[in-house]
Design a protein around this nucleic acid. Sequence first.
DNA 1: GATGTGACTATAATCCTAAACGGTCACTAG
DNA 2: CTAGTGACCGTTTAGGATTATAGTCACATC
Lengths: 205, 205
Amino acid sequence: MSATTSSAPPARGPADHAVREQIVDAAGEHFSRYGYAKTTVSDLAKSIGFSKAYIYKFFDSKEAIGEAICSKTLTGIVATVEAAVAGASTPTERFRQMFKVLVATSVGLFFNDRKLYDIAAHAAGEQWPSCRAYRERINQMLTEIVREGRESGEFERKTPLDETVQAIDLVVQPYVNPLLLQYNLDVAEAAPVQLSNLVLRSLAP
Amino acid sequence: MSATTSSAPPARGPADHAVREQIVDAAGEHFSRYGYAKTTVSDLAKSIGFSKAYIYKFFDSKEAIGEAICSKTLTGIVATVEAAVAGASTPTERFRQMFKVLVATSVGLFFNDRKLYDIAAHAAGEQWPSCRAYRERINQMLTEIVREGRESGEFERKTPLDETVQAIDLVVQPYVNPLLLQYNLDVAEAAPVQLSNLVLRSLAP
DNA sequence: GATGTGACTATAATCCTAAACGGTCACTAG
DNA sequence: CTAGTGACCGTTTAGGATTATAGTCACATC
């Protein structure tokens, strides 16, 4: 539930402006309903009662609007995961929970808000900044969990932290990256459990 | 360098017949050069000096010809990997080698024979029998390596064998499944090493 | 200076029809 | 019976004209 974006070129016009928010709201609605490709920026303009040209006072391009929506979507997933992880008491449980909820939420997006999912998948393919930020956020969470597990003696300490986290990141990516997840839906239920077990075995002291 | 296929509906006409081989040879040549979509079955017929109709005495469909080519391609990869693994002395080394060579060979196919790679990727997406067989073969190899490692005391024995192998399979899939590999090319060099380390840590007794 | 737009262009999507393609079948030749 | 094919059909594609869209700009209003 944090603010809109994080990185990315700060775009055009004032960063906080009622109209900017109106645009984002309208885009969220339209993109979710009709998809990115089938909503024109004229549609967006019409729905907020301004001309198309005015939109371009706030966003560099249609893609930049897509970025904003994608960022919101991914931020939402992260928030859900953070809430779930907060309820787990040990690093082991936090990892299991994080992986499970991350995948479940993403799969949920796929089935319940497919149009937004498609934007995220496209964004992942094009490596939009929102997706880089998303991946970094996941990496951070992973790092923190492993660090805590090491401090508490729950996880081994010999392997360099970066190396461990990097490898775990590679394990989870196919299920948390929207571009890849869509090809792994058939195992998206079982994989988090099985892979969590494997990862946790690899983390044993 | 083994025979043609393994599973799959046995297709039409006599299984070994000079013309069948001619068709497969011509298809291998054409598909590799011009791609699956851009070669017509008339092209194939012309290049072996028969009519299009005759091709259908041996294959159910153009797709069935694609299957044969895909099967040959994947069988070739497996052969390369088997040769490489044979040279490794311990299960640990066999696993590292298997993962590394499997990915390197697949990446090589991507860059040196893109058209054939694309067929394999498409086949993986559609779960053609050749791809099921390929995946099963990889699973077999994995099973054997883990089993031997357990017997020699190199790997832990508590976790059920199936479970272990299944999880390792999930780890390697994103880099050995042609459909997925193409999205992971940027890490295809580093991933096998990093993930081998993680997997082997998880296998430690 | 801030808010807002209509008129414009170059590119991308859409639509349409003729050609090409996958696949079948009845048939011929030996 | 085996080897082999031309002619045919329903569906998919190619590509070219047409339309829609992203994005800009000079200008208006307050």
